[in-house]
Simulated scan of single mutants.
Amino acid sequence: MYKPIYIFIGLRYLWNSYLTNFKKIITVLSIIGVSFGISSIIITISLFNGFQNEFKKNILSFIPHLIITNQNYYINELDFPKSILMSKNIQKISSFISSKVLIENKKNISISEIISFKEKNYYPYNIKNILYTLNSKENNIIIGKKLAEKLNIHINDLIKLISFPRNKKNFLINKMNEKTFKVTGFFDTKNKVDNYQILMNSKIALNFLNYHKNYITGWRIWLKDPFDYYINLSKKTKQHLVFLNWQLKEGELFKAIQIEKYIMLLFLILILLIVTFNIAITLTVNMVEKQNIIAILQTQGLCRKKMMLIFITLGLSNVIIGNVLGTLISFILIYEERFLNKLINIFFDNIDITIEIYPFQVFVVNIIFILISMLSTLYPIWNITKSTPSKILSNE
């Protein structure tokens, strides 16, 4: 005798040679529905992972995730909030000097931003071969390539920089400081800072901006996970400090990412609901058709618990087979990235997508699918098996 009997009967109900063509088509369509649902969820999550990683790599790897300063953007280095170092999410900290300036060159004038780092953290700018020109003895600067193109500036050109007073209250009383600098090179980061930033030696910057010794604009902080920012850290530090995170600076872009997350969540919920209804309807049709057999099995001594396990086996078989097929389909499409790019470019022109798949996410999605699908089978199973055999067979 086959043991356990409920698994044997459940698998026989799923597929056997005596099933009619219509029932076979219903079973196949049910499995295809589950596989398409799981594959679309995995591909969508992988696309979002790829977008998020590209965003971190191209934008968040360059701009600071958090800036600590005060309301005047002029702070003593000794006032650094050491309590923030207790956070495990801190990756790198760098002090900096920065200020808005007017840049004047012959017929052109524009607003720019000078920036300097005491620790010489200029590696994101890719200026190793010309970094030596930013020495403390000469008034040399390196400017963004796009800024140079906009103002028609060339290497070795002399340009005038005009700094604004730090104290905005006495803006008209305080004099502006102006000085002539020599352009020794350009940086090209493929980032928007190329449009407005100017690199300068820290000692030259301190002198030009009339900063006192040991005073800086603030600290730039990079986090291990920029999306996991704990804003309440400011409550543990001195109250006069100001915390500016990247979400404020890149507000519109951050809102777009948040909206995309909510749309993806809604999309996943809709797919789960469709698959759940699909399984519930398929299982209900199967049980209504087999209610006479259910009554006969109960009269032969098969308890209600095992009767429920038969149809749980039937429902889970659909889901597990669909999950395996859906996961395989999604893996094939993801690893064949060119095919997926071509498929997307049918609807959207010139879009190069990046896909990142994480096995843990795939495992969690499969488990959630199986659990929700199993829950969707419980009510129809309980409803059909609660009837007594005498009541079912009395209609025959």
Rank of each mutant, 00 (worst) to 15 (best):
G144H: 08
F51C: 07
I97N: 07
G251N: 10
Y379T: 10
S136A: 14
L253F: 07
Y13V: 10
Q291N: 14
C303S: 15
L272N: 10
E104M: 02
M374I: 05
V34M: 10
S99W: 03
Y2P: 15
N139R: 15
I115R: 13
W219E: 02
M86P: 00
E54M: 09
L297Q: 11
T377D: 03
I42H: 01
D225F: 05
L333T: 06
R166H: 10
G326N: 06
L244V: 10
H154A: 05
I259Y: 14
V101C: 07
Q71S: 13
V362S: 02
F80V: 00
G315Y: 04
V288R: 14
I84T: 03
L340A: 01
I5V: 11
T327Q: 11
E178A: 09
N167P: 01
R166E: 09
K236E: 10
F331V: 12
I90M: 02
I43F: 09
Y73G: 02
L371Y: 02
Q300E: 03
N214Y: 09
Q361F: 06
S394R: 10
I257C: 01
F96P: 00
K160Y: 00
S387E: 12
S317P: 03
V365S: 11
L161W: 09
L66C: 07
G185Q: 03
K305Y: 13
E250M: 04
I259W: 06
I97G: 01
F36H: 04
M1I: 10
E178H: 13
D352A: 11
I109N: 06
Q52L: 12
Y262G: 01
K391W: 08
R304Y: 06
S163A: 15
K235C: 01
L272V: 07
N201L: 03
I332K: 07
E77Q: 13
L14G: 01
L78V: 11
T282S: 13
Y132S: 15
N156M: 04
L248F: 10
A148L: 03
S330P: 06
N292H: 12
L131T: 12
D157C: 10
N16S: 15
E289N: 12
K306R: 14
N16T: 08
F208I: 11
I111H: 05
Q52N: 07
G50S: 06
L253I: 07
N121A: 05
G218W: 00
N395Y: 08
I329D: 00
L223D: 06
Y18K: 12
Q291Y: 08
